[in-house]
């Protein structure tokens, strides 16, 4: 499909955006109080100082490798996403749910024929589906020790179901996907309410005395990441089924 437009409109748009771009660059570098971002600002001048030293609740606590602390995940980004700022993550789960709800409402449902897949794809599909499931499972189980976590794990598990859809193998029905999504969503909030009754604040970790660096460390963090991974995977798989109705 061609799209053509006149040369004058292109040049005017380009010049306007160039001028605005220079202005935004000059404003974006300045952080106020005369300090620019391109000077070296160490984390002790930022909010992240408390998350790196793990002394949010108690101002003087320190920790060792192999000892216990107030939050025992070795991956600091995971501890920020799932322990210190878990409220933002649950709101993100709600926004994703509403977006997929709107998607399922707008897309037109028509019957299409699925083209027969080629021989190579037909033979390789079961091996690829198993491989994707294993890689996705490894990523969210080791979310607190190495980079990864629940969000890319959900995307990787959903590509396993995508490979099944492309070759005509219906391994899971659409109704059970909706049940999985609903159960995991309710479990996240019910764990939060249980921890309110056990410790006194919402979403507080109630599994204590872990050690930094173990596989079974991190309190409730692997449980939350597992629930988030399956919820994201179920929602993305619903998208593929809607695009490929038969």
């Amino acid at each position: 499909m061609k799209d053509e437009t006149s040369v004058l409109v292109n040049i005017i748009a380009f010049l306007i955006l160039f001028v605005i771009g220079i202005y935004i660059y000059i404003v974006a570098i300045d952080t106020g109080a005369g300090i620019k971002i391109t000077d070296n600002i160490t984390p002790t001048m930022r909010v992240a100082d408390k998350y790196l030293n793990k002394n949010v609740l108690d101002d003087n606590s320190t920790y060792q490798w192999g000892g216990t602390a107030e939050d025992t995940a070795a991956n600091i980004v995971t501890s920020v996403v799932v322990d210190y700022r878990l409220f933002d993550t649950t709101l993100e789960v709600i926004v994703l749910f509403i977006t997929i709800l709107g998607f399922g409402f707008v897309i037109p449902k028509d019957k299409r024929k699925i083209i027969k897949p080629t021989t190579i794809l037909n033979r390789w599909a079961p091996i690829l589906m198993l491989l994707m499931l294993m890689i996705g499972g490894y990523t969210f189980i080791n979310g607190h020790l190495s980079p990864g976590g629940g969000f890319p794990a959900g995307a990787i598990i959903s590509t396993a179901i995508l490979t099944g859809v492309l070759t005509g193998r219906r391994t899971i029905s659409q109704k059970s996907l909706k049940i999985i999504e609903a159960i995991t969503g309710i479990s996240i909030f019910s764990i939060g309410i249980i921890s309110y009754f056990l410790t006194g604040s919402f979403f507080q970790n109630f599994i204590l005395n872990d050690k930094i660096g173990d596989l079974f460390s991190g309190g409730l963090i692997p449980i939350f990441y597992g629930l988030i991974a399956f919820k994201v995977a179920a929602e993305l798989s619903n998208i593929y089924f809607e695009f490929y109705e038969e």
């Binding site: 160490t42 984390p43 002790t44 930022r46 909010v47 992240a48 998350y51 790196l52 030293n53 920790y63 060792q64 490798w65 070795a74 991956n75 600091i76 980004v77 920020v80 996403v81 700022r85 933002d88 993550t89 993100e92 994703l96 190495s146 980079p147 976590g149 969000f151 930094i212 660096g213 994201v232």
Partner: peptide, 29 residues
């Protein structure tokens, strides 16, 4: 910003800021 052994606890003020990474993780999804 990932702890791997005792020496990474000793140079904590050379780590990159982890807070924007946490916000971008949800923004991509």
């Amino acid at each position: 910003p990932i702890l791997t052994s005792q020496e990474s606890i000793l140079n904590l003020n050379k780590m990159v800021d982890p807070v924007p990474q946490a916000l971008v993780l949800t923004s991509i999804v």
